[in-house]
Design a protein around this nucleic acid. Sequence first.
DNA 1: CGCGGCATTGACATTGATCAAAAGCTGTGG
DNA 2: CCACAGCTTTTGATCAATGTCAATGCCGCG
Lengths: 247, 247
Amino acid sequence: MTSLSARLPEQLRRESQSASCTGCIGRSLNLCGSLTDAQLPELVALGGRRQWRRRDILFRAGDPITNFFKITRGLVAVSRTLDDGRRQIVALRIAGDCVGFLHTDGRYTFEGHAITDVEACAFSRRRFDELAQRYPALAAATADALVRAQREAGELVAAMGRLRSTERVAYFLAKMHALYASRFGDSATVDLDMNRGEIGDYLGLTIETVSRSIAKLKKRGLISLPHGNEVVIENIDGLRELGNFGP
Amino acid sequence: MTSLSARLPEQLRRESQSASCTGCIGRSLNLCGSLTDAQLPELVALGGRRQWRRRDILFRAGDPITNFFKITRGLVAVSRTLDDGRRQIVALRIAGDCVGFLHTDGRYTFEGHAITDVEACAFSRRRFDELAQRYPALAAATADALVRAQREAGELVAAMGRLRSTERVAYFLAKMHALYASRFGDSATVDLDMNRGEIGDYLGLTIETVSRSIAKLKKRGLISLPHGNEVVIENIDGLRELGNFGP
DNA sequence: CGCGGCATTGACATTGATCAAAAGCTGTGG
DNA sequence: CCACAGCTTTTGATCAATGTCAATGCCGCG
């Protein structure tokens, strides 16, 4: 089983237990090769570890931006809520990703909340920016992470604009499968950690439509739901094709 | 009247007529203050100016990425086309913006095509990356541009996921109005340069639905269409509110 | 056991897509 | 200047997909 809230690989576990966050920022931005801790003594003092429970808010849209967060455990939803309460999750981030980096006039553009229990390092945005000025590799890694994030956002736009409900759910499941595989190794079983409402808020659908779409995928033999929120991917190729999930 | 294809501000006109692209990359990335041409002699030889006609392709998804482009004139759509022909525009970019920067395994992630006639400078991606390694301000400006782009992508996701058709068109018009205002100064009149099909591909709607939505906005007195594709914004506050277009 | 939260299912309403036709516009050639 | 072809837009009549509302079922927990 692949679950964010359980059984982390050893590397991540060690990282998330270290008192300082020296390693985590380097690793998160794929700097392992180019920057060592010795080269960046400033990083030692930079990050503070924090924890949140399911449904807790990491940061609110409109609040002055002071920190961004590098997730070391759990699943975070980045979202926007309209005045009338309609909510849209614009990105999902897991261990290794950064959230709270986007800003509009010095304020968080979106809201971040914990889908599962979450641990993350908080970094001072100001000091990080100063550091990036001095260490080109850090800036390059930041740009890289942003490029990746934007690619994903574009794909989500395409899914929302052009896929119908069942295709969108297939896209979502294929994406979660790929996401977990990239961190925890391949596995046919994906523990969603999200309820129907949260999936709907991510895909622009209602709870009922998500539920019905999952039922359709089950009937088509692409997935099965042995128990709880655990999804077994029975046919990943079919799922990816239906969801137009690129290579 | 505000039109991308006509009457550029003098600064942009001068820039787009200079033989080299020295200035354009600096300006595009908001480096005016921090880097001068004298500090970056390498930039002189970096960019080559190119032109495209309406509907021409700047770059195709999947092609090996060699250049990115800094637009000096016109409107470019960044899009993705599904296997069955459904198309989704994931971003619109105008003079001053860069396109073709996103990549997946060394290949363009999306397609870029000219909505209007377009002029742009093509920069070698490899050499730009080298340069960014040496000039932190360039890297910082790149990160800044990426943050801005991602904020917009997130807003588009929210619009696609949670707004209904007429609201989406209102969002689109408010966005175009703001976009043009930021470059060419405020004006009640916006020349869309996009036909109904292209608007539909941006908003995830059909031609007919776009047409009907525009008719509704007209009837509500939010806009008027004196002639051609020229839209007069009669009530920008109402339009922004309906389209949930943030501040 | 019974309660609370979430998921499923059904009936119905609404939205937007689809199909088809008519109306405008634009440029060309007589 | 008009007539016509080729295009885009508008409008109308349906239809299918999804949202909405309501009822029921399921499951874990006190």
